[in-house]
Design a protein around this nucleic acid. Structure first.
Lengths: 219, 219
DNA sequence: AAAATTTAGTTAGAGGTTATCACGCACCCG
DNA sequence: CGGGTGCGTGATAACCTCTAACTAAATTTT
């Protein structure tokens, strides 16, 4: 969890960066145990032994802190997937990396893919990270041999591939990337939210089955 | 939106029920426009022209109000699906009913399937409604002809079918019900959260494609 | 080195929230 | 028509975010 802003020039900046990451550490702890809506700047300050308003030297508002956490979550996910992509394990490797990352801290996953708050819009640079995530996903999908003729929806995607940001993936790969995303999110999100808890079946097996179907896609 | 508790015996109970539903009405309004975490009892009271603590005559706490809203959301979804099931449109009908219901009020959908708050556990009777939803889903899946030999995961489900609550669905139907749920939730959840907004493709077409794949499932 | 500036942290306070309490008043039932 | 029941009130406590004014310390400039 080495923070990028830990190595700064002047001692002042070093200290400032260190306090910022310590604040974020306590914030993550609170989020993991009580959810993002229960995050309290006051409580964080108390934990750090200083009084409330001091935190406003480091984050302009509660929303800015949360935005920063969202940014870090995106960065962490992007790095996890990039690493998994580097091992050459393909789409399946990406899937298991995603699931591992999500189960490691469910609330972090929900910070990205959970209930949206109606007013909120993520800052521009975050969509950049999201694009990188999509890129590694598209890479893995392109690596798979195209299996069968493009479906009608594949053709539609071919005509609306702006979101691929110039990635040279064939239309079937575009489609597979999309379904990879939505299907795994479907399983994962319900699993993490505890909707499977009294259902008795094996979550690992179900995820694996869903992944298999995703990989063994015929035309 | 006729509430079940609207027709009560004594005038007192009638009035009480009416006020309760009016409170819930304002609550839904707030949730739709600002999300559940921004729901404020105080604001509701102000809207209704009475002062804060009065609402505690009708709901013991903010949590109890939200729980009641969740209950109503489940009931509404169950009824919607039951109705769709009655029209004989099959699984596809259920899918479109689900999507229509979700898009009608995204925050209501997320109240059920969105980010879980770590401490919270839904009361017993809500799981009963969830069971009914699963039942109508299993009915529709059973109505479809079983297509091919059961997969290994189908076999696993056959051994862990407690969640089906005695429903006589064949294992392939159990599996299809599960994937229907998770896959459509995956698409729907990301769509409602706005993750598709700048991607250019047609959400209706994508949903239809995902549904087609779900229905045309080979072995 | 001393002075000036920047920055961290403090307390006080405004305005918001949930929730409890004690009280008055009105309604409904016997 | 009297008396219990229940509704709504204001006051209050304990939180919350966030602003403002001030102190003290560290850094930078002269």
């Amino acid at each position: 969890m080495a923070d990028a802003e830990a190595d700064a020039r002047t001692p002042r900046e070093r200290y400032r960066a260190q306090v910022r990451t310590e604040i974020k550490g306590h914030a993550w702890e609170q989020i993991a145990t009580a959810g993002a809506s229960a995050l309290s700047l006051n409580a964080i300050a108390k934990q750090m032994g200083m009084s409330g308003p001091a935190l406003y030297r480091y984050f302009a508002s509660r929303d800015e802190l949360i935005t920063e956490l969202i940014r870090d979550a995106y960065r962490s996910l992007a790095e996890t997937l990039r690493t998994a992509s580097g091992t050459g394990a393909g789409l399946a490797g990406l899937a298991h990396a995603l699931r591992g990352w999500a189960r490691e801290d469910p609330q972090r996953y929900f910070l990205i893919y959970g209930t949206p708050v109606p007013g909120y819009h993520a800052p521009e640079d975050i969509t950049g990270i999201a694009d990188e995530i999509m890129k590694t996903l598209l890479d893995a999908c392109t690596a798979l041999a195209p299996d069968g003729p493009p479906s009608p929806f594949d053709a539609h995607l071919e005509d609306h591939r702006d979101w691929a940001a110039g990635h040279p993936a064939p239309p079937t790969a575009l489609h597979r990337a999309l379904t990879f995303w939505t299907r795994l999110h479907g399983v994962l999100s319900l699993e993490l939210a505890g909707h499977f808890t009294n259902m008795g079946f094996d979550r690992d097996l179900f995820f694996a089955a869903e992944l298999d179907d995703l990989l063994a896609h015929r035309a």
